Simulated scan of single mutants.
Amino acid sequence: MCRKIEINFKKVPPELMLILEIIKREKIDEITTDYLHEINWDSFLQLALHHRLYPVLYTKILKNEKKLFPEWILQSLKQHFRKNTFKMLHLCGEMEQVSKVFTEHKIRSLFLKGPILAVDLYGDISQRTCGDLDILIPIEDLDKANHLLERIGYKKDEYIKSLLNDWKWRHHHFTYYHPIKNTKIEIHWRLNPAPGKEPGFNELWERKRKTTITGFPSYYLGNEDLFFFLVTHGARHGWSRLRWLMDIHQMLKTELKWENLIELFKKYQSVHIGGQSLVLSANLMDSHLNKKMESLIKGQRSIKLAKDSVFYLERMVNLHTDPVQKEISEFHAKYLFSLMSIQQKVVYLLSLLHPYYTDAETLPLPNRLHLLYYPLRPFLWILRKTRKHALP
């Protein structure tokens, strides 16, 4: 058993701590009821929905013999639970269709999350939420995939603005919407955006697994690759939704090959991130940590990152909805930088010298002169700052 590192959660809302207490316990009848009258049940429901923990929460409360919670809370959770179950069933059908289309046109695809993850980690499609399908394919197949998705009714969201092909490393996925089915798909060519280091597609494909939840064969990440992806993905978002940490908790119950996993984290300069996830999971989910995991949480860096992420638990942070509050965006920028290794920080700082699409908006130039944006970039940056300060 690894040592448990204590983290201060005093400023985390009591409603969120109650949710975690319910999820951790086998029998929630054992929960102390003295403080329940102080719970703001509206906040309790909002936090359950925000952190996407309501499927597991509803299942736990449903088994409860005592009437510890208001009836309207149970009914609201039930409504969201049923809606999510139907959504997951719909995504299962969509996953099978897309997998079939891609396979027939010789596009190798790996499903990163979605219904596959619900069954793999929770044993039940209804126990995890999912808003879209995330599919990883080789970067050379992006054009073919785009054509096929448009053929079956999907529309590409052209939100990515690029200059000199910087989309290949500044971003990691394109988004597609089906206006009739109301379904969203993200086509990934990387697990995470640069400057993060990660396994290549061919390496991931060699270790793939096949799911049994669809009639047509669909594939997803191998056990250790999935853990690596979930850890790096959750860390990049500051664990601002505890569903991601719940996934880690569930994975820690499985038979992971820790020797291989530790080598994976070392190879891709993410040992401290792996350690952060273990510290948080042990403290918030009471995850059992064994001796094999110790090398990931040696030193202070993992502990500091875990303590930093408490910032996101003290408030309901949604990093995907603009505008993000200034306090949160500034903290998140510093936090992301702190996740990087020294090598990644150097690459990131050098990437700031590469032209952005905003440079082209500031000074439009014909395509044949786009290389001039490299020497002009510092001046265009100063010009934008000057204009910004002059606006008020």
Rank of each mutant, 00 (worst) to 15 (best):
I5C: 04
N8R: 05
P14F: 11
I19Y: 02
L20N: 12
R25H: 07
I28M: 13
E30T: 15
T33L: 04
L36H: 06
N40Y: 12
D42M: 04
A48N: 05
L49D: 05
Y54R: 08
P55G: 13
L57E: 07
T59Q: 12
E65S: 15
K66G: 10
K67N: 14
F69L: 12
E71N: 14
E71H: 11
I73A: 00
L74Q: 14
L74V: 12
F81Y: 11
R82Q: 07
M88A: 01
H90W: 00
G93N: 09
G93D: 00
E94R: 04
E96T: 04
E96G: 00
S99E: 00
K100N: 05
F111S: 01
G114W: 03
I116W: 02
D120T: 07
D134E: 03
I135E: 01
I135M: 06
D141L: 03
L142C: 09
N146K: 11
I152A: 07
G153K: 05
E158I: 02
S162R: 02
K168C: 06
K168S: 10
W169M: 09
H171F: 11
F174G: 00
Y176R: 01
H178F: 09
N182E: 13
E186P: 08
I187T: 02
R190C: 06
L191E: 07
N192Y: 08
P195I: 03
G196T: 12
P199V: 13
N202T: 07
E203H: 13
E206G: 13
K208Q: 08
K210M: 10
T211F: 03
F216T: 11
Y219E: 12
Y220Q: 01
N223V: 08
N223M: 15
F228P: 07
V231F: 09
H233W: 05
A235P: 04
A235Q: 05
A235T: 06
W239M: 01
S240E: 09
R243P: 04
R243C: 08
W244M: 02
K257N: 14
K257G: 04
I262Q: 03
L264T: 13
K266M: 05
K266N: 10
K267F: 02
G274R: 07
Q276T: 15
L280C: 05
A282D: 11
L284S: 07
L284C: 03
D286K: 02
S287F: 00
S287T: 07
H288G: 02
N290I: 13
K292G: 06
S295L: 09
L296C: 10
I297N: 10
G299P: 10
Q300K: 15
S302D: 04
I303E: 12
V310F: 01
F311T: 07
D322L: 14
P323W: 05
Y335Q: 05
F337T: 08
S338D: 15
Q343F: 14
Q344R: 15
K345V: 04
V346R: 15
Y356A: 10
Y357W: 12
T358Y: 08
L363T: 01
P364E: 11
L371Y: 12
L372I: 02
Y373P: 01
L376P: 02
R377E: 03
P378W: 00
L383Q: 06
R384A: 03
H389C: 00
L391I: 15
